[in-house]
Design a binder for these strands. Structure first.
Lengths: 190, 190
DNA sequence: AACAATAATTGATCTATGTCACCTTTTATA
DNA sequence: TATAAAAGGTGACATAGATCAATTATTGTT
């Protein structure tokens, strides 16, 4: 169950079993059913979540009632409302399970404590944040430079397995187009 | 000249003068004229840059020849092609001076060395990366949820001084609209 | 298995924004 | 200071994508 997390960490830093167990002891396991919320807009955000199993979406509903998806998360990814987590402000996004999920949660305080105690762990989280930053930068460039069709192709090519796993509705909300437009794009392309 | 950097760091971590001087000794000062490039698409990216004075834009030209701006940087901000910096791949964006500039550059190797040597410095860079991540997340949500008029208002409210400093052309390229559309938005609003 | 709810598709419009063309104003530069 | 170059504005038209409405799968629930 925790081997996925261990592998991810070892990809960046070496930790011996004792160190890893110490690290892991700060996480809490949570199981959620499809449709359950990990984070709700307006609430406090206590933790960052590592996905052991399942699939989630982080989204915001605009004033017209349209849903916009900031991020998906599947096995081995992390998800939270990072702004709220970091700044201790109320959540501005919702995170809900698209499938039954198993996650490991790490509280803000525990993360900071771990980072303060262990230079190696702080290094891991710096690297993780760096990679996250790069991923977001790519998404912004894609939103700025590419039209709906291009973004659709990019997403399909980048995450073919995830694409299959998701409903068209959420893919559209992630790409920033209406369900109808996505349907028309697919008719032409596939 | 370096007091700005010192203040930014002290905002996050305490460093005594000796430590700060050691930190600073890894930076190289560079002066550039308006129009000079810090980074060019296709080239290697040797460094991350702290802006002491001036204003720059990071942009990409799409296949239709349209410019899209990923980020501006003014005094106290950092700028680089982070993806290329981190992954040692060729730059995918250009960074050019919009005014005469004075920057402090930190090479990737020096940054890693500093982080490895000093837990405190690694902590600083983790925090910096975290804040950057949050800023990008906000931009994505804004691109997804807001139309041109709303994005314009948000930008004007968030960075009123910067707005004054920039040409309409680059503001449009940052917001993701044409020069003409921005001009029409302004006629209605101001 | 039957029924309700939700997802996906498709056609007919509507609308925000892009594009092109032209003009005016401001900013560099010889 | 004159002249060129770039920035900014505006009208007419084109278009990608949204919205609305209706229809057909698909999925979940008793």
């Amino acid at each position: 169950m925790c081997t996925a997390l261990q592998q991810q960490i070892e990809h960046i830093i070496p930790l011996n079993p004792a160190e890893f167990n110490f690290f892991l002891s700060h996480f809490t396991e949570k199981k959620l059913k499809k449709g359950e919320f990990l984070i709700r807009e307006g609430n406090k955000v206590q933790a960052d979540f590592f996905i052991v199993k399942g699939c989630l979406k982080a989204y915001h509903i605009d004033n017209k009632g349209t849903e916009h998806i900031l991020q998906f998360a599947v096995e081995d990814w992390w998800i939270t409302d990072f702004q709220a987590y970091l700044l201790k402000t109320p959540a501005t996004i919702n995170i809900v399970c698209l499938e039954d999920c198993e996650v490991l949660s790490l509280s803000f305080n525990d993360r900071e404590k771990l980072c303060a105690q262990s230079h190696t762990i702080e290094h891991f989280f710096r690297k993780k944040s760096n990679f996250g930053f790069v991923a977001l930068q790519k998404r912004i460039l894609s939103l700025l430079t590419s039209d709906a069709k291009e973004r659709h192709t990019q997403f399909l090519n980048a995450y073919p397995q995830l694409y299959q796993r998701l409903s068209k509705k959420v893919i559209a909300a992630y790409l920033g187009v209406s369900r109808e437009t996505l349907s028309r794009l697919r008719r032409k392309k596939l």
